[in-house]
């Protein structure tokens, strides 16, 4: 996988999310938003290996997945602004997106059955599609997750469950909420799972590629646990984490890690293109 292509998507997500926070401060957005800053390599690494007709189901923190899969910044921003050019005409807002085979919902865990149903449909119709569902570590508290893992394993559904473990369920650290281990939870249902602690998009992408190929070929569910970290707070609310901890994690910024693989000129060129695009989209969206 070409690092510059992956970098472009990471940079695009980062720039867009920062812009969203800025627009929020300026009063152009209402409600709330859960930014993806810090976790970009996960979405980009996994989704870069999907076919365009595969199903992607995401959660409340979905902008990064959307940009990585559908790349339509204008439609996304309009949706956040509640405008009719939004992906859902402004009805859904930040947490409720739908575009082609991309779906998100703001209820924890409830999207797993949807993803499993889509995987069932793909298998039933023999289309070769797979379904990928992104959940966070906090979602592991929901019972329906395990109902679905059980069924997906038993019925051999082409479903990839990606757990982005950013260590916090909103404000509560995982040490207070999670018993045992995440991978054991997959294991309990006879689902193979790979755990990866990496901020390197190439490493994530490579791991995801082999897993996605296996899901597609075997038509069996698979787990991918990505230990990660978000730099921004959970949503628009204040951040209860220790600032020193957040600061220390900055050295694992996937953006900088990817930049090390590129030449200065490449970075500049990509940043220029993305900055222009984001600026243009913001202006368009504000006028829409």
């Amino acid at each position: 996988m070409n690092a510059s292509i992956l970098y472009k998507d990471i940079y695009k997500i980062r720039t867009f999310e920062e812009k969203v926070l800025e627009l929020f401060s300026l009063g152009h957005l209402r409600g709330t938003t859960h930014t993806y800053i810090g976790q970009e390599a996960n979405a980009v690494g996994v989704i870069s290996n999907l076919n365009s007709n595969d199903f992607v189901v995401s959660n409340h923190r979905c902008h990064g997945h959307y940009i990585a899969f559908k790349k339509n910044l204008y439609a996304l921003l309009c949706e956040l602004m509640g405008k009719s050019d939004g992906v859902c005409g402004g009805r859904g807002g930040s947490q409720h997106l739908c575009d082609g085979t991309f779906y998100t919902n703001g209820i924890q865990g409830g999207i797993l059955p949807l993803a499993a149903g889509l995987a069932y449909g793909a298998k039933f119709n023999q289309t070769g599609q797979i379904a990928v569902v992104f959940i966070g570590d906090g979602t592991l508290g929901e019972g329906v997750v395990y109902e679905t893992l059980n069924i997906a394993s038993k019925w051999e559904l082409p479903l990839l469950v990606v757990v982005e473990n950013n260590q916090y369920a909103q404000s509560t650290p995982i040490q207070l909420t999670l018993a045992g281990t995440i991978s054991k939870r997959f294991e309990a249902f006879g689902i193979n799972a790979t755990e990866l602690s990496s901020f390197d998009v190439l490493e994530i992408s490579n791991a995801a590629k082999s897993i996605i190929d296996r899901v597609r070929e075997s038509s069996k569910p698979y787990g991918l646990i990505l230990n990660t970290y978000r730099f921004a707070s959970h949503s628009k609310s204040s951040d209860g984490r220790d600032p020193a901890e957040v600061e220390s994690m900055r050295k694992h910024d996937c953006l900088q890690i990817t930049e090390r693989l590129l030449q200065e000129s490449q970075i500049e060129s990509i940043q220029g293109i993305v900055n222009d695009e984001v600026e243009k989209v913001v202006l368009q969206a504000l006028e829409a």
């Binding site: 889509l118 329906v144 109902e147």
Partner: peptide, 19 residues
Amino acid sequence: PISEAAIIGMSAGMAMCKM
């Protein structure tokens, strides 16, 4: 299995696949 939430929820995905 005895998993009402999951089996009801999955039907949505199936319906989106024209089932």
